[in-house]
Design a protein around this nucleic acid. Sequence first.
DNA 1: ACGTTTATTGACAGCGCTACCAATGGATTG
DNA 2: CAATCCATTGGTAGCGCTGTCAATAAACGT
Lengths: 343, 343
Amino acid sequence: MGRTRAKSGKIRLTEVAKLAGVSPITASRFFRNPEALSISKRERVESAARELGYVPDLAARALASQRTEVIGVLIPSLTNNVFSDVLRGIYDASQSSRYSIQLVNTRYSILQEEKLLRLFQAQRPAGLVVTGINQTPQSRAVMEAMNCPIVQIMEIGPDPVDMMVGFSHNEAAFEAVSHLIAQNYRRIGFLGARMDPRVQRRLEGYRDAMAAAGLLDPRLILTTPVPTSVSMGGTLFADMLIQAPDIDAVFCVNDDIALGVLFECQRRQISVPEDMAIVGFNDLEFMASAVPALTSVRTNRYEMGSTAISMVMSAIEGKRPSSPVVDLGFELMIRRSSLARRQ
Amino acid sequence: MGRTRAKSGKIRLTEVAKLAGVSPITASRFFRNPEALSISKRERVESAARELGYVPDLAARALASQRTEVIGVLIPSLTNNVFSDVLRGIYDASQSSRYSIQLVNTRYSILQEEKLLRLFQAQRPAGLVVTGINQTPQSRAVMEAMNCPIVQIMEIGPDPVDMMVGFSHNEAAFEAVSHLIAQNYRRIGFLGARMDPRVQRRLEGYRDAMAAAGLLDPRLILTTPVPTSVSMGGTLFADMLIQAPDIDAVFCVNDDIALGVLFECQRRQISVPEDMAIVGFNDLEFMASAVPALTSVRTNRYEMGSTAISMVMSAIEGKRPSSPVVDLGFELMIRRSSLARRQ
DNA sequence: ACGTTTATTGACAGCGCTACCAATGGATTG
DNA sequence: CAATCCATTGGTAGCGCTGTCAATAAACGT
């Protein structure tokens, strides 16, 4: 029976309580709900904790309470600039709260996502942020069984699992392409890489706008499943010029591709926008600096991250938003690369 | 006495053990050290666990064992492309291991870093990855008291806390600037933003190379504490042209600034490299695609992340590297933007 | 004055797992 | 054949905290 474990030497709640002259449970309450204590006890526990340098043991807390203060975040890529802004919003919003972020990478695989969701399920997170609205039915079932606030981010659609923050990629693309049409461009190409669900919806928006103007032509569409990059933008554009030599504009699914197209135009002495208009998507910082400045669709990536975390935290506290779906919108930033075409 | 908590309904180790016909402790061993079991018990526990869909409770495990399987990662920025590659390496390397990553953002503040280190200290991580070698003495003390493997990444230097993976920013800058000198450029400007410790060391490397050639001139150096961006590159370059109108080359502390300089040159009809050579740092993907292609210093960012995690995981398992400091080196990628200057 | 509500505090018994030690049985050795 | 060893398995007692209920004191209403 004399088996004693190495006492970690770490300060426990009991020590704090003893020094403060209260019971451990009262000290415990101080850290979770200080208002429930009388002022005098509150002060005594606080100073005792400070004096001893007490830091609560999260594992013990999680075990005893059957809850954690972890918000799980599932993101498909860590490389894509789009997500680095979202992540910044997420980390900033969680910064001064008691919640910590557990970030995992689905690598654009809904099966990987499903696996990671199951893992989270076992760890009882306080909340969850998932990317997109195209989960597998199994993933959806897991989420619905999870009994914690969940926000789907990056896009909006019908039938949220719980809450949503995003915008309509379809509408954004529609507006960007309609702008090109209004500027008198007619042979507008579509350049897409890594065709994830959101990029697919941008393609639909492109199709709708072109079809509405009677301009749709399958030869104007070029996509690849390969991940996106600036050099891929150049390659796609070069291929497009073979497939449809008469194009006068390109709508690129993202800004990396748009930049690649610009460079390729410079290489081939194609002047932008006189001989070729370019429109990108996301409005990364460099788009306004390029020569000529590149038109793009500004998306509120940082806000998507920060809003999602705020919504999760409020929901944990029981404060549900008035509407479960938040549309953060977009804005077409019109710059010289899509200036009205001369007649 | 009759107080019963809501039994979570979740499958516990005891259930698995019962189904497998072994004691709970034997089942526990199966998950931590299967080799210690006989083949027959091993199989029985495995099938029982699968049948019940058992997932271990990490909080209970952490509490009982006084250890976690979390590797803490402290990164100064989530926006900077440099770190997104490092992060990808980190997450990829941890992917199929039992360790999970706890990522926090120090926002380039060593005080924030210190605070976060203390937080980690209380949570007993299995290992730690910290950025850079400029921690406060207090941070160092915390790390040394932490009794877990620690890797400092991004740069190398004397006196590691434990282990290091990186390269010499000083040498890399020295080589880049020496290259420009060898190409016959003489008035080589230095453009720097957000002067973190690693950028400072690049400045030192620049100074050393310029001084060695007798070319050092304080008017050639322009820096700002503001965060880096492409547009900031253009702004800095414009200011530099006022401060030192006779410059014939610029060494930029990173590729965003280099791209901004290129755009500014295009805007002002300054031809690159004929009238102005440009060298960047990090060799982001777009550098090779730019027109002209931009010279840069390739750094092994992904490898820095993945190597750091591998080193931590090996060290946890007791396998220490032969040398605590790993130099991942760099490579000057010479492209057209720094072509030999005409005499 | 009395019962009743409200605000504070405390006692007890785990949460699910593992560290530590002990026990068992078979193989090996002199 | 007894003594010794190793491989395998189990029992006990927590890890540090909080959920649940109970107890007490203070405030309130009639």
